[in-house]
Amino acid sequence: CHSECLGNCSQPDDPTKCVACRNFYLDGRCVETCPPPYYHFQDWRCVNFSFCQDLHHKCKNSRRQGCHQYVIHNNKCIPECPSGYTMNSSNLLCTPCLGPCPKVCHLLEGEKTIDSVTSAQELRGCTVINGSLIINIRGGNNLAAELEANLGLIEEISGYLKIRRSYALVSLSFFRKLRLIRGETLEIGNYSFYALDNQNLRQLWDWSKHNLTITQGKLFFHYNPKLCLSEIHKMEEVSGTKGRQERNDIALKTNGDQASCENELLKFSYIRTSFDKILLRWEPYWPPDFRDLLGFMLFYKEAPYQNVTEFDGQDACGSNSWTVVDIDPPLRSNDPKSQNHPGWLMRGLKPWTQYAIFVKTLVTFSDERRTYGAKSDIIYVQTDATNPSVPLDPISVSNSSSQIILKWKPPSDPNGNITHYLVFWERQAEDSELFELDYCLKGLKLPSRTWSPPFESEDSQKHNQSEYEDSAGECCSCPKTDSQILKELEESSFRKTFEDYLHNVVFVPRKT
């Protein structure tokens, strides 16, 4: 048989008469490798580009789960590009990614509803959504962080984005990388972005840091009482949809009607710091009717980097990364020049730590249904340095008659930039024990000054392991946590139920 035959053949030295091919099969003959313009397919066939392209389009058009959109890589027609490569849609070739590779997620039936953290986790790592997304989240724990972890990498949506009755959302900033909504599939009414009845939605994105392009379709905003109209108009300008909307697409009466839409800028007039305090004062603000001013709200939190936005980490279910302080308005003076500047002394802060701070007014709604208010920009203030805590785990070892090696770990709280350490030492008198000992005694162990690591005695271990207080009263049991108490109650309830079950099964009433 021919060298490319495997198993047997019907005619000697003829690659077209093989029972099976050793390498690849091409047009009725066995070959060692697939010549151009053919590609290896499933490690035994040679196919042309049209064959591989037909497989790709067949799966793409069917949208069946589990099928493969075949691509070409290293002269092979394979189910998908290997790690580190992405497909070129024009020629199906796998090309190296520039940075992290995109991950295209194809949605069944063309859309997916995100109504819980669990459903959001199914899209973790996706960068391109081939379909439409509907966000409908009523509640949950730590929602802002969970949504950002699972949806934060999405850069492109081919269909539309719909935010509907998501009472738990305060902001859409968890879509931190969303840059493009194509609108290839539109919501009824030709809408590519749809926001309806979101009672706590206050911000779409921080438009000073976020760009969003909507290729096709219109915007729809109705019944978002805490979303200011200025935020919607800003989205029109940034996304390129200005002029597409009709009169009733953006409701003037049901958007922002319960919001404090600040239209003035508060400026800080005085800032002073110490290692654990920050004193702030800002310019006074009074609405047209000074009785509408209820006070100020001061927001602050630790910020290692200057990239904080107002609604980071917030949701309507209680999660809030900001510390909020309510401040009463100052006494009002008739003389504008003698107006008191409101302020606040922030206490209990960490030394040498940068804080993000902003302040906003708290006002009631005027009778004319106009909203007044003022808010400052987010500023960054760093507390002063102070003395560091003591170095940890000092170790001293003498390696000769004239040297001592000293080692330690950095302090747990540096409280500033540590530039150097101060080492103090003092000579001590020799131990009298060394002169009084009889060095001729056998088995004498000389006193040693070398360091030995501390260890816990058996008594201390027994005390720590004991669940009861000892007789001397030195140790006591740790208080039980809520989960331990709940577990004990469940076990007790189970024992009672099981005992009742045994009584009912074992003891049967005697027939009379």
Rank of each mutant, 00 (worst) to 15 (best):
C105E: 01
D115C: 03
T118I: 06
Q121G: 02
Q121I: 15
S132T: 14
I137F: 13
G140T: 05
E146T: 04
E146H: 04
E148I: 12
G152C: 10
L153S: 11
E155A: 05
E156F: 04
I157D: 00
G159V: 02
Y160H: 14
L161G: 00
L161K: 00
R164T: 07
S166Q: 13
A168P: 15
L169I: 10
V170R: 04
R179H: 15
T185D: 08
T185C: 02
A195Y: 00
D197I: 01
D197S: 02
N198I: 02
Q203F: 03
L212Y: 02
L219S: 06
Y223V: 11
N224T: 05
K226N: 13
I232N: 01
K234I: 09
M235E: 00
E236W: 15
Q245A: 13
Q245E: 14
E246T: 10
G256P: 04
G256E: 13
A259H: 15
A259V: 13
S260K: 05
S260D: 15
L266G: 01
K277S: 06
W282I: 03
W282N: 01
P287N: 02
P288D: 04
P288K: 06
D289C: 14
R291I: 11
G295Q: 15
F296P: 02
K301I: 12
E302M: 13
Y305S: 06
Q306K: 10
Q306A: 14
N307M: 03
F311C: 05
F311Q: 08
D312C: 05
G313P: 06
N320R: 14
V324H: 08
D335I: 12
H341Q: 13
L345P: 05
R347V: 11
K350W: 04
T353A: 08
A356V: 01
F358I: 08
V359I: 10
K360A: 13
D367A: 03
T371R: 08
Y372S: 07
G373M: 02
A374E: 02
Y380T: 14
V381F: 01
T383H: 00
T386V: 09
N387M: 11
N387R: 08
D393L: 07
S401K: 09
S402H: 12
S402I: 03
I404N: 01
L406G: 01
K409P: 04
